[in-house]
């Protein structure tokens, strides 16, 4: 099993390296380099050459790549092209919002989704199962801005609670104050991630419920609750963990629509801004960070799935 986990770790590292090369080359393919962007279209050739030398853009690609990667690994993300401010500072302003929203969404959304999925699987074809399945189908079809709009219409316009815009400092807030502060984005995101997790946990469990050892558990006269929670769930961990991980990764990297909708400053809007202002240093850095988050979360999911398999945990 150790070998298997080591292999996963190794694959994760290779993935990161490959992504760094792709990100680096991708920004090189784009027309105009950093010097050109900074000095504008009308800059003289002499000024451009000077700045290129200063920024090291005249060196061969592999040297530039290694310098960039080395700096990135030591925590120096470079300066933003548009504002000339250090990128690490820009990220520091924003990562907290992203982290708080995704952590709270995960904290609330994952247990509720899994509980609904498991409950639906416990009583297949019951009214509960049908309504949960219906709900998840509706949710998977509804885009984020639509869900967000419905929530705003109901809570803000109809009930007069909270505001459409999330603003102000979160300094010194407790857990419940934070949940209240980000209530609408969290609620929207919970709906977005719920459908996949509900459907997957239900399907994975029902799949296990059809196996002969579950029939045996029924024939041993075990209560349904024990059959599901002790016998079936253990064998459904692999696929469930995987879909949970995918959704967590999305929460960190993909919540652009929700950030824009509720106008709070998170990492996803930052990368879009980077693209808009052709600030490729920023895009590179954020791209690497998002990739790292993805790889780490999927790695944890993979390892959890490996650990849940007794054949791998206890070889013959």
């Amino acid at each position: 099993m150790q070998a298997l986990i080591a292999k996963r770790l190794f694959i994760g590292l290779v993935t990161m390296l490959a992504v760094s090369i792709i990100i680096f080359l991708g920004t090189k393919i784009l027309p105009g380099d950093a010097a050109q962007i900074r000095l504008g279209q009308s800059a003289s050739a002499e000024n451009l050459a000077n700045l290129r030398e200063k920024l090291g853009l005249d060196r061969p690609y592999y040297q530039q790549y290694l310098t960039w990667l080395g700096n990135f690994l030591s925590g120096d993300l470079g300066n933003s092209l548009s504002g000339d401010a250090p990128i690490s500072g820009l990220i520091a302003d924003r990562y907290k919002n992203t982290l708080i929203v995704s952590a709270l969404t995960a904290l609330i959304g994952v247990p509720i989704s899994l509980a609904l999925g498991i409950a639906a699987a416990m009583y297949p074809d019951s009214y509960l199962d049908r309504s949960v399945s219906m709900l998840s189908v509706v949710l998977v079809a509804a885009p984020e801005f639509f869900t967000a709009t419905l929530l705003v219409m109901f809570f803000v316009l109809f009930l007069g609670l909270g505001s459409t815009i999330v603003s102000g400092s979160t300094e010194g807030m407790g857990l419940f104050a934070l949940i209240g502060h980000f209530a609408l984005p969290i609620a929207t995101l919970c709906f977005v991630i719920a459908s996949q997790m509900i459907r997957m946990s239900r399907a994975a469990l029902l799949n296990v419920m059809a196996s002969p050892y579950i029939e045996m558990a029924i024939l041993k006269g075990l209560p349904r609750r024990r059959i599901i929670l002790r016998h079936a769930l253990l064998n459904a961990i692999g696929p469930i963990v995987n879909v949970v991980a995918l959704n967590l990764a999305y929460l960190v990297t993909g919540v652009i629509v929700v950030e824009v909708y509720f106008s709070y400053q998170g990492l996803a809007t930052l990368i879009v801004q980077g693209v808009q202002t052709r600030d490729y240093v920023m895009v590179q850095s954020l791209g690497m960070i998002f990739c790292a988050v993805y790889v780490v979360i999927m790695l944890i999911a993979d390892i959890a799935a490996i650990m849940s398999n007794p054949r791998l945990r206890h070889p013959r």
């Binding site: 196996s211 002969p212 050892y213 029939e215 045996m216 558990a217 024939l219 041993k220 002790r230 016998h231 253990l234 064998n235 849940s308 007794p310 054949r311």
Partner: peptide
């Protein structure tokens, strides 16, 4: 009353 199935390999829960 207790039941013994044809395939013990399938009848035992692999995770317990």
């Amino acid at each position: 009353v207790a039941y013994l199935a044809q395939s013990a390999a399938a009848t035992f829960n692999p995770s317990l």
